[in-house]
């Protein structure tokens, strides 16, 4: 840490924002993709297996959580790209705060996720979803989603540094899907075989989805999951943040 830590982090965040300005289509696609999934599950595939009440009220919070989980892929891709280009050597051979590289990534990804949430919530409203909640609960739900995304962010950074090559990202991308769907995002565990239902209930993403449903006051919410939705992501961050930072420091070995 030095006196420039904040300035450097801000400069690195601006770098990411400049990337958005250079590639508006890519940013747009990133925002549209979860919307597409939402509409697909809402109208094409949906039906809400085992859901009491409106499926859309169950689906939208689930999709919000799923989108946060999928954010991991984006983080990984960006980090591996940086690592594989000479540019990371440039950063590391400069008198800048080295951690600013990670902080910039973090800030940009969180901002993008927040925008993604806003878009998805807007589309959810348009297709008939309603939050039966006060402002405090609403913000609490958004906060839980972003906290979950924050955990995914550090897992993504760590995996990117372990995997190293962009080719490996593809493998992880494929794995994110079953892990994402092995949750209660789209269907309730009661409709699944027992063992599967257990796995699904233990999935940290399910905890976030359930807590968010509870806060939004829709079907599928259960009291007492908010704590789990706070503790799980924090535990993941507690594991993966130091791992990622240590890996980053080890680039000099």
């Amino acid at each position: 840490m030095n006196t420039y830590a904040l300035t450097d982090s801000w400069t690195m965040t601006r770098r990411e924002l400049a990337h958005w300005a250079r590639q508006p289509v890519q940013v747009l696609v990133g925002l549209v993709f979860p919307v597409m999934l939402l509409l697909m599950f809402g109208f094409l595939i949906g039906g809400g297996r085992g859901v009491q009440g409106e499926y859309v009220d169950f689906l939208v919070p689930g999709m919000l959580a799923l989108t946060m989980a999928f954010g991991l892929e984006g983080t990984m891709l960006q980090v591996t790209q940086d690592l594989n280009k000479g540019v990371i050597d440039r950063f590391r051979s400069m008198p800048m705060t080295n951690g600013a590289v990670l902080v910039g990534r973090c800030a940009a990804d969180m901002l993008q996720s927040a925008i993604g949430l806003a878009v998805l919530i807007g589309v959810g409203y348009a297709i008939g979803w309603r939050a039966h909640a006060g402002a405090g609960e609403f913000l609490g739900a958004v906060g839980l989603l972003l906290l979950f995304r924050f955990a995914m962010l550090w897992i993504g950074i760590h995996l990117a540094m372990v995997a190293g090559k962009p080719e490996m990202v593809q493998a992880v991308q494929i794995l994110v899907w079953p892990v994402g769907f092995l949750s209660n995002a789209l269907a309730t565990p009661e409709t699944m075989p027992d063992w599967l239902g257990t796995v699904v209930e233990w999935n940290p993403m399910s905890q976030t989805a359930t807590a968010v449903r509870e806060l939004f006051g829709g079907p599928g919410g259960e009291a007492g999951h908010v704590w789990a939705a706070v503790v799980w992501p924090l535990a993941l961050v507690a594991v993966f943040f130091p791992l990622a930072v240590r890996r980053f420091g080890r680039l000099s070995r």
């Binding site: 400049a18 990337h19 250079r22 590639q23 280009k85 000479g86 540019v87 440039r90």
Partner: peptide
């Protein structure tokens, strides 16, 4: 290898 930000 070019140590540049290729997007920018």
């Amino acid at each position: 290898h070019a140590a540049l930000d290729e997007e920018l």
